[in-house]
């Protein structure tokens, strides 16, 4: 029986080595780069466009650009911030296709959780909590949502996020702080999450925002 090696982890060479090998015509090196970052870019595109087909096209366009730019790419260590930056720009520049109903982040997560093990009540409870949290993320503005997605979905650190969004690290810290604070305020309305509202809001007679029950808006405001 043929055993398949995971192509994403099959090549132990660094991005720097793979880029230089691909530049010399090594197709295996380019494929290794592709498999290494394919899924991350797909998830990022999916989180921004909410359309799996568009996310796949973003993956292709991103790597097509990377291929064309191979001669001038000089990755010090990781190619990831450069690729993600291209993917973010492509995602925001992409016009939504006509007659396509875009799904929100939590619907995309439902597809991923379809095969999750556990009792039905446990799965339902987790799905509900997830829906609440992702719904609150959707309520954020585009800049703050992008920082949250890059950090929590794609696992980028603050320096890498700063490279992707092309701003200083301090700005990224500020945006992440603002996003976490907003999320705390939103999620405090749901006691099952065990999050208290900020003390500064309690002092001013804070009333928890209305819990999210209706379908979320799909488009950015």
């Amino acid at each position: 029986m043929k055993t398949e090696r995971d192509p994403a982890t099959g090549d132990a060479r660094s991005d720097h080595d793979l880029v230089y090998a691909a530049r010399d015509g090594d197709t295996v090196a380019f494929d290794a780069l592709f498999y290494r970052y394919r899924d991350g870019i797909f998830r990022l595109g999916l989180a921004i466009t909410k359309d799996p087909s568009s996310a796949e096209e973003i993956v292709l366009d991103t790597f097509a650009r990377a291929h064309r730019a191979l001669a001038r790419l000089e990755p010090d260590d990781s190619l990831r911030p450069w690729l993600y930056r291209v993917a973010v720009n492509l995602s925001y520049n992409r016009r939504p296709r006509k007659n396509v109903v875009l799904s929100s982040l939590d619907e995309a997560a439902d597809v991923a959780m379809a095969n999750e093990d556990g009792s039905p009540s446990h799965v339902a409870e987790k799905a509900e909590l997830r829906r609440l949290v992702l719904g609150a993320v959707e309520e954020l503005g585009p800049k703050h949502r992008l920082v949250v997605v890059l950090h929590y979905l794609n696992g980028l650190n603050l320096t890498e996020i700063a490279e992707v969004v092309d701003c200083p690290v301090g700005t990224v810290k500020s945006r992440l702080h603002y996003a976490l604070r907003r999320l705390r305020t939103h999620l405090a309305a749901h006691p099952e999450l065990g999050i208290e509202p900020p003390r500064s809001l309690l002092a001013t007679g804070f009333r928890a925002p209305k819990p999210i029950t209706a379908p979320l808006p799909l488009e950015d405001k």
């Binding site: 797909f42 799996p52 790597f63 992702l134 929590y152 999050i195």
Partner: peptide, 21 residues
Amino acid sequence: VDTALRGAFASLRERRTIVAP
């Protein structure tokens, strides 16, 4: 908040694509 976000995005991190190079 951090734990809730990590849990919510954990399922999304499992999403994969089959696009070939």
